[in-house]
Design a protein around this nucleic acid. Structure first.
Lengths: 365, 365
DNA sequence: AAGGATAAGTTAATCGATTAACTCGATTGT
DNA sequence: ACAATCGAGTTAATCGATTAACTTATCCTT
């Protein structure tokens, strides 16, 4: 339904108030007004208050384009998220965005948001676009290698990486300790008596065959692509091994991050007579649970479950789902903090932050 | 866990490539380069290709600050959302944001995102901040009256309002036809044999007492504050009346948009022996369902339920929840379309778009 | 062949805020 | 008492891209 309405408002064609207008009205130079606004040179109280008065009267707002052009600071931070349509990770990244915004706002910065849609090409394009637009970039990377990213950064801006760690990246980052959370989760599962524990996840960023994986291991920690999924997978294997349970590759399935894929993989896995599943991906967890419900399997009697990330729905399914919760908002706050520091002091040491997860034990195991 | 790492990268202190550099290398004037880039004056093929070549070689990217300053176009659209922390509406607005972004990107525009947190003051501040930053603003308003908003807009930018309609606003908007969706939902409930239908919602933007409400009715359609909740409430009443069911104010409860409030209000409502509930708010629906599950009430035998908005979780609870789905992504696309049109042709007629909801019948009634 | 029209580029003013360099009077030190 | 220093403002160059106005050279038209 589309209506059309005649245009006939009190169109404002107000010429913007310039610093010059303020200066004239206050009887001072533009430089003085600028000094009052930015407080970077001493101005006498008398003049300062006169200028401030005029500033208010005229409702002056600095033209950010002019300001950026002259000072080469944009006061804007870019944030690139990697989500597909219908991906529930959007809630995760949105919470991160909130954290970022909260911190930025308190320091007078803006946030520009863009979505790479998990497409490395898109990501590179966005970075290009950001080149002259931002003072810093918070990036949840989809390119697995930092080289290509680094090459497209031709402007002098700061970067903070979150959520995943591309190969060759040495700068600031904020990650979540996915190893610890998963390790603890698997451990709990085992303590509760589960022995045949399946592992469901979306794709790994690293080679999955054993040979290649071993090869990777020899590189230093910074030299492999770290994404949440492979950390979780590693933790799964280590936890099993620490509990003297042998690793069975048949119990591990990777698929795309979707409801359907969760459903399908759960079906496959359950046909293998496992007694518990660790599902490293929120939306796949939903699909899996759907299948389990359809099969009328009892949770946790027939099958134990742990999911990843705490969404509201995890509380209202029956039984409520146990989950490993990532501190999304906090990631955002920390990332913003890092980037602002780096902008203020570009030569400062790089910070590597790893946030702890929280283990939410409910009734699904 | 925080690590410190010595800073010692191959710091880039590259001076940015300016249009002047390109011009010199290509042996033409800066004006010509600009014309090639923007295509607003004819340039011979020979020169055009020469310039394009240099553009690539030098990896030129226009300085957006300079461009904005001169052309008074920022090529940026602002988007203000009104969400509180933990509000599941974040998923709804995020989908809208995706829709906006998709459309904007295809036309070379950027998106700046900010959150008013449902605080009218904050909203006004954000608008102020946007004044010289954006060419247009997409606003999910929290101020109920447009006057205060209008007063803080001192720059000459375009506005498109979404989701709610403040009093006195006459410009472009994209809304969802909440009346229709709710009306149909209630109708279906009645057809399925439910008679005592409760209504749960977060706060209305209009006076709720009957007198005041009647007073409001006399104003023209554009003169009352329209938000999704009051439309839904209206539809509820009309649907009852059309089915010759008398309206019982005891069956209607308003609370804040939270899990707990949904839980509490469901408790209240159920004590009144209703046989179905229409829950006009997603997160309240979760709380309500939690309570219903705890009481071991059978859905839909003991109680029928319809919720609002289609989240993934609605499929995996038992039984799957019937819901009215808003076309979030589409709202974004349309809003972006409107604002781009308005920017191109500021005097064009205002468009009023109302999108249809979708009725997802599942097994909860 | 003269005069105008057109085509293809160029020159230079301009957007608004910042800031280095400067002015000018007052204060201080010896 | 005189130079040096300081305090409080001002002047004017500058950031990089756009674009109105202008310059040539070329092409018609009669």
């Amino acid at each position: 339904m589309i209506q059309q309405v005649k245009f006939g408002e009190d169109m404002k064609s107000i010429k913007n108030v310039r610093i010059k207008d303020v200066a004239e009205k206050a009887g001072v130079s533009t430089a003085t007004v600028s000094h009052v606004i930015n407080g970077n040179k001493y101005v006498s109280e008398k003049i300062k208050s006169k200028v401030n008065k005029v500033l208010k009267e005229l409702n002056y707002h600095p033209n950010s384009a002019a300001r950026s052009l002259r000072s080469t600071k944009t006061n804007t931070i870019g944030f690139i998220i990697p989500i597909n349509r219908e991906d529930t990770a959007k809630s995760f990244f949105m919470s991160i965005a909130e954290g970022i915004e909260e911190k930025l706002k308190s320091r007078g910065y803006n946030l520009i948001l863009s979505n790479s849609k998990e497409d490395p090409e898109q990501e590179l394009n966005l970075i290009k676009m950001f080149n002259t637009q931002v003072d810093g970039l918070i990036l949840a990377p989809t390119n697995e290698n930092f080289k290509s990213i680094n090459e497209t950064i031709d402007h002098n801006f700061q970067i903070v990486v979150i959520d995943r760690l591309p190969v060759g990246y040495k700068g600031d980052y904020v990650l979540v300790d996915n190893f610890q959370g998963t390790y603890e989760g698997i451990n709990e599962l085992i303590k509760s008596g589960f022995k045949k524990i399946g592992f469901l996840s979306s794709g790994l960023g690293i080679p999955t065959s054993n040979d290649e994986f071993e090869a990777n291991k020899e590189l230093s920690n910074n030299e492999i692509y770290v994404n949440p999924n492979n950390e979780r997978f590693e933790a799964y294997k280590v936890a099993l091994s620490d509990n003297k349970i042998s690793f069975n590759p048949d119990y591990v399935l990777f698929g795309e991050s979707s409801f359907q894929s969760g459903y399908d993989l759960a079906k496959q896995l359950i046909s293998k007579e496992i007694d518990a599943i660790f599902i490293a991906n929120n939306i796949m967890a939903m699909g899996s649970i759907k299948f389990i419900q359809e099969q009328k399997l009892k949770i946790p009697d027939d099958i134990g479950i742990i999911g990843y990330d705490n969404y509201d729905w995890t509380e209202i399914i029956s039984p409520p789902l146990s989950a490993i919760k990532q501190p999304a908002f906090e990631i955002g706050v920390q990332a913003a903090e890092l980037i602002l520091n780096k902008i203020q002091k570009p030569t400062s040491d790089c910070q590597h932050i790893k946030l702890k997860t929280e283990n939410l034990k409910r009734s699904s195991y």
